[in-house]
């Protein structure tokens, strides 16, 4: 397969990132953290894996322009890939509706939040994950997403308001 998926096995090859950290070392040591963020963004284990691998591959392509710790760069790629329509774009989907549909039957509280997060637009979901899971400051979140701090503030406020007023969360 030209597209490699979890579980596939292929011959290993050393890809040297710098004098201090190899590609493999970085992936082994840091990709679990990236996967956790990707899972919160995509809400799907397989899509999260694909998003992480896509981002790592893009970083590798640009690695000679990246100085210092590569993780912020990879994280920036990952979040922007997701927020800019990753998968929807690659798969040719048209944004006729934002998935998924809303307001199913009553479910557990944490699942309620999970479903409510899914109802947020992608950029708002990305802001929420960066601010309240990765604990980035507003400035760092803005830098990661390539938007102004004002936009981060307004997106955060709007997302939190949406989560609070979401009917799925009224029982809380």
């Amino acid at each position: 397969m030209s597209v490699v998926n979890p579980g596939d096995t292929v011959p290993s090859a050393k890809v040297v990132v710098s004098d201090h950290v190899s590609f493999e070392q970085f992936v082994v040591s840091r990709s679990r953290a990236l996967l956790r963020t990707a899972y919160l963004l995509t809400q799907d284990r397989h899509l999260a894996e694909d998003l992480v691998q896509t981002s790592l591959a893009k970083w590798w392509a640009a690695r000679r322009r990246v100085t210092g710790d590569p993780e912020p760069y990879v994280r920036r790629i990952m979040v922007n890939e997701f927020a800019s329509g990753w998968r929807r774009r690659w798969r040719g989907e048209r944004p006729t509706a934002e998935p998924p549909d809303t307001h199913g039957p009553a479910i557990e509280p944490h699942t309620d939040l999970w479903a409510a997060l899914a109802n947020l637009p992608r950029r708002q979901r990305a802001v929420i994950v960066l601010r309240f899971f990765d604990d980035l400051t507003e400035a760092d979140t803005a830098k990661t997403l390539g938007v102004s701090v004002g936009t981060v503030k307004s997106q955060t406020a709007r997302a939190l308001a949406t989560l609070r007023i979401d009917p799925l969360l009224k029982a809380d």
Binding site: V10, V15, F23, V28, Q53
Partner: peptide, 15 residues
């Protein structure tokens, strides 16, 4: 996670 490094390397080669 070591398998992921291998998978990404294969993806890079394909790209």
């Amino acid at each position: 996670p070591g398998a992921r490094a291998t998978q990404v390397q294969a993806r890079i080669r394909a790209l």
